[in-house]
Computed example of a mutant assay.
Amino acid sequence: MHLNSHITQYLQKLPPPQTRDLAVERDLPVPMRDGAVLLADRWSPESGVRW
Rank of each mutant, 00 (worst) to 15 (best):
M1P: 12
M1T: 15
M1E: 13
H2C: 12
H2D: 15
L3C: 08
L3H: 08
L3W: 11
L3T: 09
S5I: 05
S5A: 08
S5L: 07
S5R: 08
S5C: 10
H6N: 14
H6M: 11
H6W: 12
I7S: 10
I7K: 09
I7H: 08
I7T: 08
T8F: 08
T8A: 13
T8W: 11
T8N: 13
Q9E: 15
Q9N: 14
Q9G: 09
Q9W: 06
Y10G: 07
Y10W: 15
Y10R: 12
Y10T: 12
L11C: 12
L11A: 15
L11Q: 15
L11D: 15
L11I: 09
Q12G: 04
Q12N: 15
Q12W: 07
Q12Y: 12
K13H: 15
K13R: 14
K13W: 11
L14R: 13
L14E: 15
L14T: 09
P15H: 06
P16K: 10
P16F: 11
P17V: 05
Q18L: 04
Q18C: 01
Q18P: 00
T19P: 00
T19C: 01
T19I: 03
T19A: 03
R20K: 10
R20Q: 13
R20N: 12
R20C: 07
D21W: 03
L22Q: 11
L22A: 07
L22N: 05
A23W: 00
A23F: 00
A23V: 00
A23P: 00
A23K: 03
A23Q: 04
A23C: 14
V24I: 15
E25K: 02
E25R: 02
E25S: 03
E25Y: 02
R26Q: 12
R26H: 15
D27G: 10
D27T: 07
L28K: 04
L28V: 07
P29F: 08
P29T: 05
P29V: 05
V30H: 10
V30P: 04
V30F: 12
P31R: 10
P31H: 10
P31L: 10
M32E: 13
M32K: 13
M32W: 08
M32N: 06
R33N: 13
R33M: 10
R33E: 14
D34K: 07
D34R: 08
D34A: 06
D34V: 03
G35V: 05
A36M: 14
V37Q: 09
V37R: 06
V37Y: 04
V37I: 14
V37H: 03
L38M: 14
L39A: 12
L39P: 03
A40C: 13
A40G: 09
D41R: 07
D41L: 07
R42V: 04
R42I: 04
R42S: 05
R42D: 05
R42M: 05
W43S: 01
W43E: 00
W43M: 03
W43D: 02
S44T: 00
S44R: 02
S44Y: 01
S44P: 01
S44H: 04
P45H: 03
P45F: 02
E46F: 02
E46M: 00
S47F: 00
S47Q: 01
G48K: 01
G48H: 00
G48C: 01
V49P: 00
R50S: 01
R50M: 00
R50P: 00
R50L: 01
R50N: 02
W51Y: 11
W51H: 03
W51C: 02
W51K: 02
W51S: 00
